[in-house]
Simulated scan of single mutants.
Amino acid sequence: MGFRCLIIKLHVQILRVTEEEIIRGLQSGDEKVFREVVDRYQTQVFRTCMGMLHHREDAEDIAQEVFVEVYRSVKNFRTDSKLSTWIYRIAINKSLNHLRKRSRSRWLQPFEMLFNGKSEESVYGSGESMPHAALEKKQRMQKLHAAIDALPERQKTVFLLNKFEELSYQEIAEVTGQTISSVESLLHRAKVNLQKKLWNCYKKECL
């Protein structure tokens, strides 16, 4: 083994030991280590939340929740992934949960508009039919919500970010760490899966 390779190997080992020590410190409840973790990752976590939420105060609140979750859950952390990857996933999941809550009113949009842009009037008409239609719409939204939640995680993430948060493919790629082509493929598969799950309702009322 050459000298350069030896130095690289030793450097990797030092980094690995350092992370292992950090994890042990977190798991033992060492507040100093926890503050170091916050200092090390807070910028990345905030940037991730901000990229998904586009609202500074919300991003700051969710970033705080991320580190609270890190402190509470680190005892269950498994070292088969990097600490930074685990923290990043927490940030993504908490941001997605916040998006669902913040976008609750958007769930009341007719789901056909996600696919073919039909207006509410073209589906429901107007006047006396609206109260009954509103109930049916609510039921369909519940089905849509359940169908989206049943999507594979990566498909669900890009679908929510694109359709409800209105992020571009480029923005989604930056937030999730995927290529633009992967984002496009995941979004296409998400739409196909949703149309399959909701086909009966979609066929009867949205075409």
Rank of each mutant, 00 (worst) to 15 (best):
residue 94 K to C: 06
residue 92 I to S: 02
residue 90 I to P: 02
residue 181 S to R: 10
residue 54 H to N: 12
residue 171 E to G: 02
residue 101 K to D: 14
residue 144 L to C: 06
residue 60 E to S: 10
residue 118 K to R: 14
residue 12 V to E: 15
residue 118 K to V: 12
residue 184 E to Q: 15
residue 14 I to G: 03
residue 134 A to H: 12
residue 54 H to W: 07
residue 116 N to I: 08
residue 20 E to V: 00
residue 207 L to F: 10
residue 189 R to Y: 12
residue 54 H to I: 00
residue 60 E to Y: 03
residue 129 S to L: 10
residue 23 I to N: 07
residue 37 V to N: 02
residue 7 I to N: 06
residue 188 H to D: 11
residue 79 T to Y: 04
residue 13 Q to P: 03
residue 180 I to C: 05
residue 119 S to R: 08
residue 195 Q to S: 01
residue 175 V to M: 00
residue 102 R to L: 08
residue 102 R to K: 09
residue 158 V to Q: 06
residue 78 R to C: 07
residue 186 L to D: 15
residue 184 E to A: 14
residue 132 H to L: 15
residue 169 Y to C: 01
residue 114 L to N: 11
residue 15 L to Y: 11
residue 163 K to N: 13
residue 190 A to Y: 09
residue 140 R to Q: 13
residue 94 K to L: 15
residue 29 G to M: 07
residue 79 T to G: 08
residue 128 E to V: 14
residue 57 E to Q: 10
residue 123 V to C: 08
residue 175 V to E: 03
residue 176 T to P: 02
residue 76 N to D: 15
residue 122 S to I: 05
residue 135 L to N: 07
residue 89 R to A: 09
residue 20 E to M: 11
residue 6 L to I: 10
residue 159 F to R: 02
residue 192 V to R: 12
residue 173 A to K: 00
residue 170 Q to F: 12
residue 131 P to C: 09
residue 92 I to D: 06
residue 132 H to P: 00
residue 204 K to D: 15
residue 38 V to G: 03
residue 87 I to P: 03
residue 160 L to R: 03
residue 146 A to Q: 14
residue 156 K to Q: 14
residue 165 E to K: 12
residue 137 K to I: 04
residue 178 Q to A: 12
residue 33 V to C: 10
residue 15 L to T: 07
residue 122 S to W: 07
residue 171 E to C: 03
residue 146 A to G: 05
residue 164 F to H: 09
residue 79 T to H: 04
residue 175 V to F: 00
residue 125 G to P: 13
residue 138 K to A: 14
residue 98 H to M: 04
residue 104 R to C: 01
residue 14 I to T: 12
residue 47 R to P: 01
residue 63 A to D: 00
residue 159 F to V: 02
residue 8 I to A: 11
residue 21 E to N: 15
residue 93 N to G: 01
residue 190 A to H: 09
residue 157 T to R: 11
residue 71 Y to L: 13
residue 3 F to V: 13
residue 46 F to A: 06
residue 124 Y to N: 07
residue 191 K to P: 01
residue 37 V to I: 08
residue 147 A to F: 03
residue 184 E to Y: 05
residue 5 C to Q: 13
residue 201 C to D: 14
residue 29 G to T: 02
residue 66 V to W: 05
residue 121 E to C: 09
residue 63 A to N: 00
residue 169 Y to T: 04
residue 114 L to S: 08
residue 181 S to A: 13
residue 157 T to Q: 14
residue 88 Y to W: 12
residue 104 R to N: 06
residue 80 D to E: 11
residue 74 V to Y: 04
residue 148 I to K: 05
residue 67 F to N: 02
residue 37 V to F: 01
residue 47 R to G: 01
